[in-house]
Design a protein around this nucleic acid. Structure first.
Lengths: 188, 188
DNA sequence: CGCGCGATTGAGTAATTTCAAATCTAGTGG
DNA sequence: CCACTAGATTTGAAATTACTCAATCGCGCG
């Protein structure tokens, strides 16, 4: 568990350094979870009790549209947090699926425990606030790119911004993320 | 100023009730701003020092694409917060424009002051954390709707979810928000 | 060696955009 | 109060774009 704790501590220290005391308190609330490629972290219809910090591996969050086609909302890898946040926040059954594109290791934090941490440790409230701000900004960029740019532009920008991803994810999934058919993507 | 302060206090109390002391501290950091229809709250290229809580009125946030067409990221009205959050967060010049669709009243909060408030008042860190979470979830829904649904479905859902908006916003703006040409929208 | 999955290519189809023109509407000045 | 004008909306028709369906190609794995 130590190696995972040090991952978490380093992750948090991007924004705040915790004292030993704070750290001992916080780290208790996380639990380790491992999944293999193709396994579900979250499945549509389930209750979503936890959010997950990805220690290693890569997942995709997606929904299925009325024609049965995957619509990928986001890919998430090391140092990203992932959950079905709507379901998580409002205690609803998941509308999303999250499944592992690679073997994965996660640190899980329940909703209740996150609230406890944030009420107790001022720095952690600010940590999650800043994380959430970043996430918000990232999604706003995504909305803009969906609306302003063609799928081809989105593709080349993704190649540029996150070349790593292209190596780790099959093109049909990239297509589902960019919002075009795989045939169209392969004509770029 | 009292009426605006009571608006703010009520707004915050959706999540937390502040003590008199806390409230006196917090309220000092907000300043009032009024603009008329068609005036800019934020203009592309400017520094963005503040975020704004809308007390009354309605604004649109948008960018201009390479063909000179408006792409509307969001509408915001009473009780919404608005800024160019990328620029605000990272101290970059604005890429967005925010302008008033109606006469507006805002309560402005600078980045530095927000940080002060959040470092000082634990409840406010949690308040902004929760606000940001909500915003994140809202944007995630928006990404999904852009990818899963046709513009026509998005239109009828908007009519359903926010009928108020249709009254207050010309259809050409709705088109720019939904991601279709105004001609196509008028054929629905 | 052959199977299966992912990626590519081709052809026809459906949907949306663009350009153009006509119509409608709200606000202005006389 | 009415006429006028600018902006907003609608409608038509052509052009563009992306989609679907189908067939083919390529590669890794049993």
């Amino acid at each position: 568990m130590d190696q995972y704790n040090s991952f978490l501590r380093k992750h948090i220290s991007e924004f705040y350094d915790l004292t030993e005391e704070e750290w001992n308190f916080v780290s208790e609330f996380f639990t380790l979870k491992k999944l293999r490629k193709h396994q579900f972290l979250i499945q549509q219809g389930q209750q979503v009790q936890e959010e997950f910090l990805i220690v290693s591996g890569l997942v995709k969050s997606y929904e299925i549209d009325e024609n049965g086609k995957e619509v990928i909302i986001q890919f998430a890898k090391e140092n990203y947090w992932v959950s079905d946040y709507f379901a998580f926040q409002f205690h609803q059954p998941a509308t999303m699926n999250v499944d592992c594109v690679e073997d994965c290791t996660f640190l899980a934090l329940s909703f209740e425990n996150r609230e406890i941490i944030c009420e107790k440790i001022h720095k952690m409230a600010n940590f999650f606030r800043k994380k959430s701000n970043r996430g918000f900004i990232g999604l706003q960029q995504r909305v803009l790119s969906l609306m302003k740019e063609t799928a081809e532009e989105r593709y080349t920008q993704l190649l540029d911004k996150d070349p790593d991803l292209i190596q780790r994810v099959p093109k049909k999934m990239l297509a589902a993320f960019l919002g075009v058919s795989r045939e169209t993507l392969s004509r770029f």
